[in-house]
Design a protein around this nucleic acid. Sequence first.
DNA 1: CTGTTAGCGCCTTCAT
DNA 2: ATGAAGGCGCTAACAG
Lengths: 304, 304
Amino acid sequence: MIAELRYVPNMLGQSLRTNRTMVIALVVSDINNPFAIQQIRSVGEAARERGYTVVFTHTEASEKNELDQLRTLIEHRVDGVVLSPVTNRPDSVDFVMGQNVPISVIGYPMPYNDVDVVRSDSRTAAEELTRYLIGLGHERLAMLSGPREIVTARERTQGFAAALAAAELEPVSLHHAPYTADGGYRMMQAVLQADTRPTAVVTANNLIAVGAARASRDLGVKVPNELSIVTFDDAPSDAVLDPYFTGILQPTAEMAETATRLLLERVSGDYSGEGREIVLPTRLEVHASTAPPADAGKRGDRTS
Amino acid sequence: MIAELRYVPNMLGQSLRTNRTMVIALVVSDINNPFAIQQIRSVGEAARERGYTVVFTHTEASEKNELDQLRTLIEHRVDGVVLSPVTNRPDSVDFVMGQNVPISVIGYPMPYNDVDVVRSDSRTAAEELTRYLIGLGHERLAMLSGPREIVTARERTQGFAAALAAAELEPVSLHHAPYTADGGYRMMQAVLQADTRPTAVVTANNLIAVGAARASRDLGVKVPNELSIVTFDDAPSDAVLDPYFTGILQPTAEMAETATRLLLERVSGDYSGEGREIVLPTRLEVHASTAPPADAGKRGDRTS
DNA sequence: CTGTTAGCGCCTTCAT
DNA sequence: ATGAAGGCGCTAACAG
């Protein structure tokens, strides 16, 4: 048994000598999100296939943590970094690139960095999602979005607005809060206590959707009969009985795998050049959280 | 800004010289389990407080992966290991201790290793859980357990059996399968297709419970009206709308934090001596997956 | 107190 | 083919 062999080589010596640790890092922002779990699995797999070890870190959605941890990882001379960043501000990526450490980014465009990015098109997906609700007959829609600093939140809000504009509808309201269940809960409370209630809400993230659904339940509003909820990234999970939310799914596994591949191409020297941007398609999945509005029968077909 | 400083020290040199990396490893077996997420958070926090960095690895419930990864981690000279092991076989722990690397174990007793262990009492908890069902009036109970090689599965089965024996009841049946939703699904199918159906099942793990609930739904058996399901470790999660299963909760965060503390006591040299075993209390939480049996009214009080 | 040096374990080079 | 030596970046020990 190799594993039983007494002698274990010291990679510190080897790495010091060769300038390669054969370790890459995956830095995710929120480990509570099942989305991140999928990334951890996929990156680990893709890296192991190519002989690399992966170490994971989570930043709890804090840019300061993100920078601290990238620094620590680079101190330990990881060969590269896959980053699922907190925001698209350039600081973290700048820092890593400034240290000549290869990096690839999962999630959203990085306008100020010439870096490899793998993402999906949030804006278009949000439009599609909103159109789906409009197609069901909804006319009063609200948006529960994420932090303004985060690109996905902005893009999803834009897509929402664009779909409404195309249908010549006005949004009932538009909210921002952190990407957490608690944030969703508070936004939904506000929505339900306002004068005009929407018949459907678009949420910018799965945790927000969970919070929104909890608030609806607590205030006695039935989903989907009285209120439809749609969301993003409600990934199927072994730990959950049933997918519940109608929403947009990103090809998480493929995104993570691709980001790892791009990274290792740079690490191994097979590629060096300008940043590549790969945009993968999303898909809409319909589940139990949506229905036509209660008063749908009264009106004609609403599809433009 | 410190993080902007151009120079980043090379920990490889430092570590090679000082024999300390200030990094500890957390090796969990199944990252799909929300249980593991909590461990990742808690160990990370406890270690950071004490100036250590944590790297995570998951073994996909394979002992081979576990050993491989421990080896890789030790090659990179982590200062210690927190292990949430696949089984209680001594090989992994032996290997780590044989390399003079401090280790502490989360989960279950390690009869063949003199090692620090933090765990809860699965057997007693399973008894309590089963007694709860009996107290509701259930007399026909089945057990959907985990792999025979895994201690928690054995202990939980023993507790189940003990509670039944104390109430002078016979189990309807007893099944073993992997700790996965799929395993639970198959066991539940078998249970529901047998001649005598139980009115309640005890599952040995949250993923098994999810599979069991899916099978019940697919076969048209209503939970909890026609069938009660109880489980272990159905940790509350931000990603889930509501805790659904009645079951036993372990103090996951406290266990992980304690294991980290014990480990770092050894790493720092504050403690060296024989293995310590810390057993933390569990608690029973009642949710929507249990009810008295449909025919409960017909009989008298069943509590012994 | 500052400056120099040896050596941690490994790989690469060069000599035998 | 096998063997010896230098140096990766760092710190601890020691000298000035």
